[in-house]
Amino acid sequence: MTTVQTSRRYGPGRWAVLAALVVFAVVMLAPFAIVSLNAIKTPADYSTNGPLSLPSELYLQGIIDFWNRVDFGRKLLNSLITSGAVAVLAVILSVLNAYALGIGRVKGRLWILVVFLVANTMPQEALAYPLYYLSKEAGLYDTQLAVIIIFTAIQAAFGTYLLSSVLGAFPREILEAAEIDGAGRWRALWRIVVPISRPTISVLLIFFFIWTWNEFFLPLIFLISNDNQTVPVALGVLQGQRMMDATMSSASALLGIVPAVAFFLIFQRTLTRGVTVGAIK
């Protein structure tokens, strides 16, 4: 590295850029901070001191009341089961499809890919009523299984599209070497393709989990009984009713935020690792 470059790299302007980006980050995070701050205040504290003051005492009753009122533990479990099942199943299907399309290069793969993409982009509105009707006929209405089946199909469509292009660029020499070694197709998939593509696959797994957790439209239609509802459906429906005071309302927002942020903190390591492994390779 030359000295000219070094001095340019450490010019004073860099602090201005950093400051601007940090201010922007603060703006992005402000709603999270404000919600958290007010979820732990008494309603009286909120009305006298406003939303920006620090709570005069730690008040958890709003959160506890809201938790009990909606049986929040149950909602968390429902969301966890649905999202986890969909993430795993959709990743398996995506890998199988992408193997056939990206590496197997089956005939007509471009058209198959287009079908998958169309399936993924298909608005759920154009499937909702028939799915609602069919699930009633099949006795699956108001069950989590119905939601799991539907979202496995929808997420796998996206995963296939993404993973096919990644596997399309998979180094041929490795596969040829495996073939010479006598590894069958099935073995080659699980022993070579999957481990080497792990960074992409784990990112897919995370996205599927988060996306399914976040889904609202179809779960709103399919999960009508209180015992089956997911977190977003329960909170969204309650918000529509607008029957809460200021602090309980922010307690409900906080309870929606906490699991999502917790997953993010857990997953962030995998996301970063996925990205760095990709860079080393």
């Binding site: 922007f24 980050a25 992005m28 995070l29 709603p31 999270f32 404000i34 919600v35 007010n38 909120y46 009305s47 939303p51 920006l52 988060i210 957790w213 976040n214 889904e215 609202f216 977190v231 977003p232 459906v233 909170l235 969204g236 918000q239 005071d245 200021a246 309302s249 922010s250 409900s252 927002a253 929606g256 935020i257 999502a260 942020v261 997953f263 993010f264 962030q268």
Partner: peptide
Amino acid sequence: RAAYYLPQVLPVAVAGVVWGWMLHPSYGA
């Protein structure tokens, strides 16, 4: 990057709940 990404981890309905509260006409922050 994590700070910019944080809103995206929210279920969009929860983002709605957050802003519905922030922007409430009588008690909104």
